[in-house]
Design a protein around this nucleic acid. Structure first.
Lengths: 339, 339
DNA sequence: TGCCTTTTCGCATACGCAATCAGTATACAA
DNA sequence: TTGTATACTGATTGCGTATGCGAAAAGGCA
């Protein structure tokens, strides 16, 4: 059996069938305002429908040098925050007439491979979420005139476009929030090592604490995941340190932390100590997990990224821009005022 | 400023620069075994690298009538099971040299729109997950010779390819499992109305129960979501019916159910009644949610879908095939033997 | 050296579309 | 009737790649 049992109708086929030229068919299907007489238009639409004709966006892309495809590189499928971002991206790009090509970059070594693949497919732009990437690759990428936007990640020297939450300010805000409410013995559960998001949140948290007179902050290892939050709680409790405020720089970690506390200790939050998360991703059950957290304006960040991308595609500018967003503390029930 | 500040090098450019013909460049880059002398090959590879040349997969697709793009239509971004499926699909298709075009089909009315878009992009095949679709559209789609596979969904008359868990057998297995262990007063929390998955699980559950002498099964409305499980528990408890076995046809629902019970009642599972879920999607904390569930062989199902898709692309056959998979009860801690 | 086989390469064309340009038909004014 | 402007249509070209065919070059053998 042949590879394709049916051959798709092309505009040429429709033209022959309808007795017009291929150009006229083309003019009818790309609504670019070029006038076609009404009777021919109807004739063409009818024969096209009868033959099941659909314009080939591949051929159109080749001709126009524009694919209307956006490459979306995603790494972290276990973090609800990025799932939510993915959902919003796909929705908003679709609404703007773009289609998403998804690259699930499992390990960092494959990033370059995926970027090249996206390039070969002539994507109009690339969004990188949650990837700890070698910036040299992206710089090289820029040479092709394809816009790249880092989402929720900054790179050194701001050599690449980025839309990001101001993580330093976020860390500072959490420190301020806790210390202003009388917390003195703070703990920071670290996120993924080497990621700019963790580094910035940690630096902001520690610096602001220092400025407010709190300098010895305990740091426990982690990696943003639920499990790491759970284990961090275990580790912290085993050390039996006295503490009254914990900052988990992701909601997943915070919830893992809460679970360990409620399952294996007699402590209760916020009576015995306060807990603040980060992200503000949707929580299924806020009654069960009334997590006070620093909420990133995810929706606005995605909107900005999409708009920024489209603007850049339509008017390419080589100078990189970084947009920083500020979130705010979402007060729920895991922080008590200790003054 | 121009739309593109740089023009990408084409095979023709490389050919001119290297002093060979465009054909030879092409032959070097599509490793189709056509011989090119070693010195020219090296020369071409070098100049290509120097010029930053990458073959255009768009142009290649136009020429070959094959894009190596798979359209993936996803609806349910809130269900962990489908997120996991999406992750596996993207991984496995990438490994097989295919790239994924993602369509986030928000509401069912847009399915047709997304299918058409995928068609226009000349995708080599389409996988539909979690979509309650009008089969007439898909039938029409088949006329284009583009393979369509329904994932985790059957359609009436089996007119379309499908890879699915045998939901009827699953429902039966759960009924058998509960009744064999002495449960007599069963409750079924319904999944999304109108979905084949819910209908089949429900039918299997009720029929098998009937055959084993249990005929009056209470049914509570739901839609597969965490919230609907939570509300169903509330509703059930309010009715104060005596029951000893509950079947939630998705793990999300089951966990919502568990949460309501532990938060708002004095009942405990499995002491006061047993609970069985469905899916077997990863649960973050099995200690906290030791849910006994019917586990679908997700990994194998995805593998089969990918393999099936590639086979169908390479050797198109118009006769639709349905592959049914059987899962099994994953015993954890929410069922007690009541004999 | 001449002839033949094999390897290697270039020419020309096709893929499906959009755009440019040139050409026809119609309308209206002179 | 002719000229001009305008509405419309068609032939042609190019986007970047792959490939059949034939030509040329290289190599083998007498």
């Amino acid at each position: 059996m042949a590879k394709k049992s049916v051959k798709r109708a092309s505009s040429k086929d429709v033209a022959r069938e309808a007795g017009v030229s291929q150009s006229t068919v083309s003019r009818v299907f790309n609504n670019s305002g070029i006038p076609v007489s009404e009777d021919k238009r109807q004739l063409i639409l009818e024969t096209a429908a009868r033959m099941g004709y659909r314009p080939s966006l591949i051929a159109r892309s080749l001709n126009q040098q524009r694919t209307h495809i956006i490459g979306l590189l995603v790494k972290n499928f276990s973090n609800i925050f990025y799932i939510e971002a993915l959902r919003l991206f796909s929705l908003m790009f679709q609404k703007q007439g773009y289609t998403i090509m998804l690259f699930n970059t499992q390990d960092d070594g494959r990033i370059e491979e995926d970027l090249v693949k996206a390039l070969e497919y002539q994507v109009d732009g690339v969004v990188l979420t949650s990837a700890t990437l070698d910036s040299s690759i992206v710089t090289q990428y820029k040479d092709f005139g394809v816009p790249v936007i880092l989402f929720n990640r900054l790179n050194e020297g701001k050599a690449v476009n980025a839309v990001c939450c101001d993580n330093v300010a976020g860390g500072e805000a959490v420190a301020r929030y806790l210390i202003e409410r009388g917390h003195r013995n703070l703990v920071y559960i670290a996120g993924e090592e080497g990621s700019s998001t963790n580094r910035d949140r940690q630096n902001g948290f520690i610096r602001q604490s220092g400025e407010m007179g709190i300098s010895d902050i305990r740091i426990i290892d982690g990696d943003f995941s639920y499990q790491s939050g759970y284990r961090a709680a275990e580790q912290l409790i085993a050390q039996c340190t006295s503490f009254d405020g914990v900052f988990c720089p992701s909601d997943s970690m915070a919830i893992g932390f809460m679970d360990y506390i409620s399952m294996h200790t007699q402590l209760s939050i916020p009576e015995d100590f306060s807990l603040v998360g980060f992200d503000g991703a949707p929580i299924q059950n806020e009654e069960l997990y009334p997590l006070t957290t620093y909420e990133q304006p995810l929706q606005r960040m995605v909107e900005k990224t999409v708009q920024f991308m489209i603007d850049t595609i339509e008017n390419y500018t080589p100078e990189p821009v970084s947009y920083l967003f500020n979130g705010s503390i979402l007060e729920r029930g895991t922080v008590r005022d200790r003054r």
